[in-house]
Design a protein around this nucleic acid. Structure first.
Lengths: 236, 236
DNA sequence: GAGTGGTCTAGACCACTCA
DNA sequence: GAGTGGTCTAGACCACTCG
């Protein structure tokens, strides 16, 4: 799994944007300059930059130059994204606070979901994610121990559960529901919201190796978050 | 606005797929073959095919070939659905009440969205959709008169605006945002909700013939509605 | 071994912008 | 006119698959 030159260039620029070494609106080095820097042909640089433009990380203006795109406070509607990456892509700082991490006995609903016998245990975590210190997602997660036996030994202030699980249990399929709810009192308190402030509740089920790997509830404050999606009808 | 060779190749293949001249799963001509057909260098064909793969129109397998992609079980999270059809599929009765249907002068925001000059007019409609008599969606819609000149002459208690617009202005692209909001007072009243009850607000922009055709706000009572979606990661 | 796609090179011409 | 990105060429080497 070595990295090809154009991928290395992409990653280098993307990292520079995520780390704010390049800030929003700033001009990036020209293609010729990047050719010299990386010692490659212009087509190679061009492909890297073209793909970054397609991913909306940079904006290209013919005859002028390439600029770091303005960050958009958005997140993919149905994508499987890591909240820390999303925040980094907006050039902001991610931090996380772990409120719970442990084992619990599956209740009837959970047993049905995970297809577990009576008395079986599940891992549970509750984590608050912040963007520049402002709470933006409260994540309450049930995890199948069979698919992630070392789940409880992770430091989720440093690596998100999503990031960890993607590594140990490759995602096969994902199902979502999205609804509007009033923030439950304890979650409202953790997020610093008025009681019963509208929240977006995304419920996500993730399958791996033909078993349900995780059942996650993601709460987003309605005042601070918007999901987005775009698509092109397939049958034109 | 002439078409570059790689775009011509893309369109040619995409048209072949859309017209079923190439059917799902079928092998497409190899890059070398397309070079001869179109009289271009392989890099040019490669770019065309690479972009078609990125758009999930074709699937490429190194060492084997390029195939027409199977129609994707693409997430239905925010499909372009007609609410009347959805309700009918659940075996329930749909009814609609028209609260507004007329012309208004576009404000600054609307003019920017629709790319209209100052003083231009837009069509506006506000309709409440019910499932078995219970309000389930309040639809507030701005429509581009240029794309649907007869919009105001329709009876939207019988045919939904969505249904009508799909006929007169074929959908090219759709973008959504989803957020949780407190129900605005007048809408809460129309829907019989408690003031400030959480609502799902779906904002939808629909393009047709390269212009914005409609800008729609859909309010769903949080207590009565859930959006769902499911998808399979494309690669890895 | 023949064929496939993935990637790269070292040039090139063009339309465009900006000073 | 110098600099930018958009596109194209005519080769090349590689890892891969399949018969």
């Amino acid at each position: 799994m070595t990295e090809s030159p154009y991928q290395a260039i992409k990653r280098s620029i993307a990292d520079g944007i995520a780390s704010r070494r390049y800030s929003a609106g700033q001009v990036l080095p020209s293609e010729h300059e990047l050719c010299r820097t990386f010692g490659v042909a212009r087509m190679t640089v061009n492909r890297a930059m073209r793909e970054l433009a397609a991913e909306n990380l940079v904006r290209r203006v013919p005859g002028v130059g390439t600029f770091v795109a303005e960050p958009v406070a958005q997140s993919g509607l149905v994508e499987l994204r890591n909240i820390a990456d999303e925040i980094a892509e907006r050039g902001h700082r991610h931090s996380a606070q772990v409120f719970a991490l442990g084992t619990l006995v599956a209740d009837e609903v959970a047993r049905a979901l995970f297809a577990l016998p009576a008395g079986a245990a599940l891992y549970h975590s509750a984590i608050l994610h912040c963007e520049n210190g402002t709470p933006i997602q409260y994540e309450d997660r049930l995890v199948n121990p069979a698919l992630a036996p070392d789940y409880l030994r992770q430091d989720f202030a440093r690596m998100t559960p999503n990031e960890y699980l993607v590594q140990v249990a490759p995602v096969q399929e994902v199902a979502h529901t999205v609804q509007a709810v009033a923030a439950p009192p304890d979650i409202a308190r953790h997020m610093g919201l008025a009681p019963s402030e509208p929240c977006l509740l995304v419920t996500r089920r993730t399958w791996s190796r033909d078993r349900l790997a995780a059942f996650t509830k993601l709460y987003y404050p309605g005042s601070r978050f918007v999901l987005t999606g775009r698509f092109v009808p397939s049958n034109r």
